[in-house]
Design a binder for these strands. Structure first.
Length: 903
RNA sequence: GGGUUCGUGGUCUAGUUGGUUAUGACGCGGCCUUUACAAGGCCGAGAUCGGUGGUUCAACUCCGCCCGAACCCA
């Protein structure tokens, strides 16, 4: 392959025969794909080119949830981002501007630990600012790697619009959000029951805990009964409770009995004495008691589980705090003070046994709640935390969810049920050392909350001074900085505001957006497993800040499963890595496979499906090669007058119009799998198998302006329609065939999406002609003839007006004749085909009789009406089925809409 | 345990308000060297639509129960 010197630049496109204007016989994705990936990035092909003055209807904006980049790319990333890329590429062509940004989430425990490991440091030895600086440095390599991987998957992301959740700009937005919500009265600080991880020593939210099966002891413990509902109990009267956590005995505040528990009903209203610790507690009835477990009598403590919290709230119980924030017993535990919960449990069981209060201690398996990050069993403590109020606005948030279009629609129910089940406000403070600081100080004298000034943000109260010298309430001058940081979701839920450049304008005294044209965002993609917190929290936050629902559309993606439809997980060892897949298959083939499932459905990773995509690439390449050979240079092809278009060419262009309409609708509705299937089968079956075979013959004896035009037009359109799915091969073909080798890249991905041209054609005649061709192909195959065998004469009945030559040429028929009348046949009525959609509603229960009569042959057609079973059916309700026998010369072939005689 | 979603040939999948012949792909079997493509073309086999009851003239489609899977929440 030689290239002449002037094009032998460092432009990789010149490596092959581009200058010779023919396509090589094989498509080589291994060389082509990286070439374009680099070029797109170098040329900034996907950079957002809108600004604040642009009509937001002309902008398609995507708010992408940022992945944790310190982890490695998995099939879920690949799939979810590929779906996003389909929408981005389609809309980039269909609209004026597309905004497809990227975010790196490095503001979490994962990157914190990574930084400590990589640098061999402890975050405690640095200020938060210093440590976060180091996190940013360490994460940079991981981000670069992630970026490379995303680029090698052909994500059409604008790499000049990225953010990191740890960067100062994002910290400022997080703190602005906090202050705005506080000023709106949507936040409060309260001492309240919190889910607490004693190992990490932080509050965690409901969603950060997970189930873990645990083997433990179930202990039956005797309580002294002091009073029953009828007054003082008999001396020495006891009852038994069962618990897995005897270390909570000092925290016991009451005993519960189920209202339906007849056997123990006499206890209700009475009083009991807790063994060893001696506090007297009331006995109360409540339906939340599980009668099946243990004795059916249960103690309630501060707090053993979430039911204890519910009881505390419902029955106004006192607090007895026996376990502190590090999981150590408090002074309330008396002799056990200072022990860990585990140690106290052992000791208390022993002592219970000594005083004769331990009835039995037996093996027991149950489920406990653990912190998802460290697997430590959680405690329920009373601590001071910041909350975002939510429970009072759940109706609004539900309505906000209704205002968005959900793809698929059914996923809205997950959002709805999550909201309907909400029981807690959102705890947003965390006791981590690192993270985005809560920008608050407290007056040492009166406890007044001092918020940072918006213009000072970001601040860190541990290093920065409060904005006032004296407390506005009491005039005090000593301030205590808030040590807590935000829950990462408090930041992750702000991505639309980060992307739109939300900020506080101190001069104007209002919040502004650098890019108001982006908001609300057209699309929010999200995995179906995290609708409840990520998407929900984002809707809540943005709604409260802007008064507007942040997204017009939500696209929920499913999960990639293994070939047996099981979830991929490292413990099962069935994880498929994107790198392995990318080594074996072209990215375009992987993308085509990604489009195979309906949006929202989980789907399995199957190698065979990737091969289908690979074959399509080759087919597209080969067809392009043929078209290139058949037609002159693209710019020499001109549109003929409408009247000069041959019927078959006009037919192709009209069919293409239909396909464009349909594909456009499907892309608009995020129906990628429908679009993919329809495009593939239209291209392969209608265009390649039918039309291209005809065109090949029509052009074999020299040029034909009509067919050349139709071929090139269809081909250009196909490249555009395939472009969102197969960005590399379409770009390669587009560049080779339809652009000058200009300085600047004129990418197929920045061309306009095809519009229908409004060609009018006899679609039915075309369809019949294709039927006839298919029938002749079948005839040749059945007769053992090669497909290019000559046929002497073929007669066709069934209008194929205008397509006679096309059929004859394509099928090598010497003499093709059309018939005005059906061939002479003897017919025999074999039955009646009813149109039940008409007959059913009309005759209802009589349909059975009608069917039976037809089955028995008891019917008669008179004057275009069918007399059967005592009723008379109109002509449109039925069709007489007949078998036809042809006794003339040649062989008769019937298709659905045509009859032909091959002779 | 509760909720949500789902269950269609060997595998994956279409099936829009119920209308009787259930779509396509992969795989499988057979045939065809045809001047873009054997990674192609043509033909064929293969499904009582998870099971079971019900509503209806008519159910893959609507309803009840059961079985199984995934996710979310306990």
């Amino acid at each position: 392959m030689s290239t002449d010197s002037e094009s032998a630049s460092d432009d990789a496109a010149a490596d092959e025969s581009a200058t010779e204007n023919t396509l090589p016989g094989e498509y080589d994705p291994g060389a082509v794909e990286p070439k374009w990936q680099d070029r797109w990035v170098d040329e900034g092909t996907y950079e957002y080119d809108g600004d604040a003055d642009v009509d937001s209807n002309l902008v398609y904006s995507i708010d992408t949830p940022p992945p944790t980049v310190s982890g490695s790319l998995h099939m879920g990333h690949l799939y979810a981002h590929t779906l996003q890329d389909f929408t981005a590429r389609y809309h980039r062509m269909a609209r004026e501007h597309t905004f497809f940004p990227f975010g790196y989430d490095d503001n979490g425990i994962a990157s914190e630990r990574l930084t400590e490991q990589e640098l061999g440091i402890r975050h405690q030895d640095f200020t938060r600012r210093e440590f976060q600086e180091k996190c940013r440095e360490v994460c940079q390599d991981y981000e670069a790697e992630f970026t490379d991987e995303m680029q090698s998957l052909a994500m059409s992301i604008d790499w000049t619009n990225t953010y990191k959740t740890i960067e100062p700009r994002v910290q400022r937005i997080s703190q602005l959000s906090f202050i705005d919500l506080y000023e709106q009265g949507r936040e409060y600080r309260q001492r309240a029951p919190t889910i607490w991880c004693p190992d990490c020593e932080t509050a965690i939210s409901q969603v950060e805990q997970e189930d873990k099966d645990k083997h433990t002891k179930f202990n039956d413990i005797d309580f002294d009964l002091l009073e029953t509902s009828d007054g003082a109990a008999a001396d020495g009267a006891t009852f038994t409770i069962s618990t897995t956590r005897p270390e909570l005995l000092p925290a016991c505040v009451s005993v519960f009995v189920h209202p339906d528990d007849d056997e123990n009903q006499h206890l209700v209203g009475g009083t009991a004495k807790v063994p060893i610790f001696g506090q007297e507690v009331p006995i109360i009835a409540d339906e939340r008691v599980d009668m099946e477990t243990g004795s059916g009598i249960v103690m309630s403590c501060t707090f053993g589980d979430q039911t204890d919290i519910e009881w505390y709230q419902a029955h106004d119980l006192p607090l007895r705090i026996a376990i502190d924030e590090s999981g150590t017993m408090t002074d309330l535990a008396g002799d056990y003070q200072g022990m860990s919960t585990e140690e106290a449990r052992e000791a208390i069981i022993e002592d219970l046994d000594d005083v004769g209060a331990l009835v039995e201690s037996r093996d027991h398996d149950h489920t406990v709640q653990v912190h998802e990050r460290c697997e430590t069993e959680v405690e329920y403590l009373v601590t001071e935390q910041w909350y975002v109020e939510m429970l009072d606005r759940t109706d609004d948030y539900l309505e906000a969810g209704r205002e968005m279009e959900w793809y698929p629609e059914k996923m809205f129910t997950r959002y709805q049920h999550w909201i309907e089940g909400l029981e807690w406000d959102w705890c947003i403070s965390r006791q981590r050392d690192s993270g985005i600081p809560i920008p608050v100080w407290y007056c040492e004298d009166c406890g007044e909350t001092i918020m940072a000034e918006k213009e000072d943000l970001p601040v860190d109260p541990l290093s920065d001074d409060p904005p006032v010298d004296a407390c506005s309430e009491c005039g005090g001058s000593d301030f205590r900085p808030e040590e807590d940081v935000f829950d990462t979701w408090a930041t992750s839920s702000l991505t639309p505001l980060i992307n739109a450049g939300w900020d506080w304008d101190a001069e104007a005294g209002e919040f502004t957006m650098e890019h108001p044209e982006l908001y609300q965002f057209d699309l929010r993609p999200q995995g179906h497993d995290i609708i409840s917190f990520w998407l929900f929290h984002t809707v809540v936050k943005c709604y409260e800040h802007t008064g507007e629902v942040p997204f017009e559309n939500v696209m929920i993606n499913g999960h990639v499963l293994d070939e047996n439809r099981e979830k991929m997980s490292s413990s099962r060892g069935n994880v498929v890595l994107p790198e392995e897949v990318m080594e074996k298959y072209p990215v375009d083939a992987i993308r085509f496979w990604s489009a195979s499932a309906s949006v929202g459905d989980d789907f399995p990773y199957k190698e065979g499906d990737l091969e289908a995509g690979e074959r399509l690439l080759q087919k597209l390449w080969n067809a392009s090669r043929l078209i290139d050979q058949l037609t002159p240079a693209a710019d020499a092809v001109e549109e003929p007058d409408e009247d000069d278009l041959a019927a078959v060419d006009r037919w192709m262009l009209a069919e293409l119009d239909d396909a464009v309409d349909s594909l456009t609708e499907q892309f608009e509705a995020y129906e990628f799998s429908k679009a993919r299937n329809e495009l593939r089968s239209f291209f392969w079956n209608s265009f390649c198998d039918d039309y291209l075979e005809i065109a090949k013959q029509r052009l074999s004896d020299g040029g034909d302006a009509s067919t050349e035009y139709a071929l090139v037009t269809a081909h250009r359109t196909f490249l555009k329609l395939f472009a969102p799915f197969l960005p590399h091969v379409t770009e390669e073909l587009w560049q080779r065939l339809y652009t000058d080798e200009a300085e600047e890249l004129d990418s197929v991905h920045t061309t306009d999406w095809p519009e229908t041209r409004g060609y009018d054609a006899d679609l039915e005649a075309g369809e019949r002609a294709m039927e006839v061709i298919a029938a002749l192909r079948r005839y040749k195959t059945d007769s053992g003839l090669p497909l290019n065998a000559d046929l002497d004469t073929v007669q066709v009945y069934g209008g194929i007006a205008g397509f006679e030559d096309a059929v004859a040429e394509a099928m090598h028929v010497a003499d093709l004749e059309t018939l005005d009348e059906p061939p002479e046949v003897t017919t025999e009525v074999t039955g009646v085909d009813l149109d039940y959609s008409l007959v059913g509603p009309e005759y209802g229960s009589e349909v059975g009789d009608i069917d039976a009569a037809i089955e028995a042959g008891e019917f008669e057609e008179v004057d275009g009406k069918l007399q059967v079973a005592g009723v008379e059916l109109d002509g449109e309700m039925y069709e007489i089925e007949e078998s036809r026998t042809y006794s003339g010369e040649g062989e008769m072939i019937e298709t659905e809409n045509a009859v032909l005689i091959v002779g």
